[in-house]
Write a protein that binds this DNA or RNA. Structure first.
Lengths: 188, 188
DNA sequence: GATGTGATGTTGACATTGTCACCATTCACT
DNA sequence: AGTGAATGGTGACAATGTCAACATCACATC
């Protein structure tokens, strides 16, 4: 439970929302998914939460910082899904399924917004946490283990290609992952 | 050579530009690369070409159709670079290098803009042409060959991760690609 | 050669958006 | 009680995508 400032949540209208930051984020996730990361509007999110267009700016310096917060949320969700996976295959499947079920969120999570601006260390924290959990399934702790990078790049690639409808549906992940031999061979 | 309508290209100011469509595209590519796909503005492109804000609309029904045209251009460029590659390794290197050198273009090319709207069959044509050339390096003609999908997903994954600064520089492609064994193994 | 027709550009307008400056309310702490 | 920091609201501004209406030009047809 989040600590609310008042005891009665059903109080009709308070000048101060009490928990705007989180409310904005949870309200924004469906909007993000329906509009896409480049179309989502801070004002619309504010509207659906019944606050003024500028209320969000008391919690996020800029729109991109807000998007960074959404991405952080995404990494947290992904981490929570990834943690209980039983083996490598299940972990990969979970990862890809998350991406396919939340295409716009996933796209945002891996948007250059991450690499570039936004002081948001929350984002870096959440993403590295998720990556750490992923590494566990890859049987390593070294973030730069080439085997881990290979596996990550592979499932990330499959995920994004599938999101963009570039993989015919019936080709499942395992079938793709099991067939790298010629690659390894030909690179001698 | 493109057929120009007038013989003297250096005529000072003509009401009709003569080749606006192509001019817009070539002018937009640098802007795209400096601003990013979500920040580029149709009006700014028009401005740099010295036409009115609405001139582009005579050539593209909507902004997204314009972006689709840019993406098409990207696929054409990629195809041209890919075609002369001598072997698998060179092809992959070329692919990834293109992505890293034109991160925003590459991002646009694999943006959901492709999958969703825009009638632009030009885009589909250009992208499948590029993919076909890529398949050649993968020693197959079957677009759904799991080995090809694996290879494509892998280099696409590496490319996007690198674009987002998620791969420490020193880890080169071949080192990653050569290390898939445990993946193939553990999936039994 | 006059004409009119379709393609291409221009101008003006509108709603929406991100964001700034300033005002209002409330809570915590003295 | 009173003061200041959070937090929320209002108004304003420039930029953008896009629509409607108008202008100009190349060219085919008489």
């Amino acid at each position: 439970m989040v600590t609310m400032s008042t005891s009665h949540p059903e109080s009709p209208k308070k000048y101060h929302h009490g928990n705007l930051r989180d409310t904005l984020i949870t309200a924004a996730l469906p909007i993000l998914e329906s509009h896409g990361p480049d179309k989502i509007s801070l004002r619309e999110v504010a509207r659906t939460v019944n606050v003024s267009p500028n209320a969000p700016y008391k919690h996020f310096p800029t729109k991109e910082d807000f998007l960074a917060a959404l991405a952080s949320k995404g990494f947290q969700q992904l981490e929570m899904l990834l943690a209980p996976a039983k083996n490598l295959s299940a972990g990969c499947e979970t990862y890809i399924t998350f991406a396919v079920h939340n295409p716009h969120l996933y796209q945002l999570m891996f948007s250059p917004i991450l690499a570039t601006n936004c002081e948001s260390s929350e984002l870096e924290q959440a993403s590295t946490a998720a990556y750490k959990t992923l590494l566990k399934h890859f049987n390593t702790h070294n973030p730069n283990d080439p085997r881990a990078l290979h596996a990550w790049a592979l499932i990330h690639g499959i995920a994004t290609l599938r999101i963009n409808g570039l993989l015919s549906h019936p080709v499942p992940f395992e079938q793709i992952a099991k067939a790298p031999l010629f690659m390894t061979d030909q690179l001698k």
